[in-house]
């Protein structure tokens, strides 16, 4: 098919447009990217010998793990539980308790941070402070905060709870702030025009618009806190993780496997509850 001009009037070359400034830039970026990846692989210096040896060790480990030992034994007169079973039970209860307390306290401090980090509600300087808090608490992993706090407060759940509370604004305030930025400004003006003060504006204009979302986020955060609580014990900050760490360190792999299964069950249960409640609320 011919166009409006004779066929030879049309170009014979076509190059795919690129998002980069030019095709040359594109190849430079690709080259650098590949070089970076290659350097990383080389830098890791993984020797095949060690890898194969590890696989053998893995087989030994797996053998030690199966069957898992929950510390429950069946004797002639029925089921008997041992101390190790109670350690799992207590660890699980502590994990659960930590997640709940940390969620309540964490949300309590995150709400004001969220307001601070919402561009449309506060003056500029306050906004920057709010964003900074969100960034810093997001960047630091719970375990890092946990290990530092353990030194400050000693082993136990308090350090773990505080670590989780510290990490909460990075998630909760960030997402809530985004919702606050999306609220309908006309409703705020309506409340303001009745002569209401700033606090009343928050309660009557802002809160009703974001409350369901807040409840949803709280439950979501609890779910995350529950996961984190299961591992904080590895650095001594309370919960089932401590028991798991000890089991690995003392080569009780079958007991460790039992704890792992218990952790997975708890995490999956938490996820189901969280997903179900969030669907109901929103």
């Amino acid at each position: 098919m011919t166009g409006t001009r004779p066929i030879d009037a049309y170009e014979t070359e076509w190059r795919r447009p690129t998002v980069f400034a030019s095709h040359r830039t594109k190849w430079i970026v690709y080259g650098l990217g590949i070089a970076f990846l290659a350097w990383n692989v080389w830098e890791a210096r993984v020797s095949l010998e060690r890898f194969v040896y590890g696989l053998g060790q893995g087989a030994v480990l797996l053998e030690g793990m199966v069957p898992p030992d929950f510390g429950v034994s069946v004797t002639a007169n029925g089921i008997e539980t041992e101390r190790s079973f109670w350690r799992i039970y207590e660890g699980m209860v502590e994990t659960l308790a930590m997640s709940i307390v940390a969620t309540v306290a964490g949300v309590a401090i995150s709400v004001p941070v969220a307001v601070m980090a919402a561009e449309n509600l506060v003056p500029r300087p306050v906004y920057y402070v709010g964003r900074a808090i969100v960034s810093v608490t997001r960047a630091m992993h719970e375990l890092i905060v946990g290990i530092v706090l353990v030194v400050g407060f000693g082993f136990g759940a308090l350090a773990g709870v505080l670590a989780l509370v510290f990490a909460t604004p990075g998630f909760f305030a960030k997402l809530l702030a985004e919702d606050l930025e999306d609220i309908d400004p006309a409703q705020l003006d309506a409340v303001r025009s009745t002569g209401a003060g700033p606090l009343s504006v928050l309660v009557y204009g802002v809160l009703p618009q974001v409350l369901p979302r807040m409840i949803g986020l709280t439950i979501y955060r609890w779910d995350i806190n529950l996961r984190a609580s299961t591992i904080l014990g590895i650095v001594g900050a309370g919960g089932i993780g401590a028991t798991l760490n000890t089991a690995f360190n003392t080569y009780e792999y079958d007991y460790a496997m039992a704890i792992l299964l218990a952790i997975i069950a708890l995490v999956v249960l938490g996820e189901i509850i969280s997903a179900y409640t969030r669907r109901r609320v929103q």
Binding site: A44, V46, F51, Y53, G54, Q57, G58, N245
Partner: peptide, 28 residues
């Protein structure tokens, strides 16, 4: 998918440190 997601990376790290010894490999 769900098996990989429900075990935290630090627990994977514990397991791989036992297998491959301490160091970068276990971390990777």
């Amino acid at each position: 998918i769900s098996g990989s997601r429900s075990v935290h990376s630090i627990i994977w790290a514990l397991v791989f440190v036992i297998m491959f010894g301490t160091g970068v490999l276990a971390g990777i």
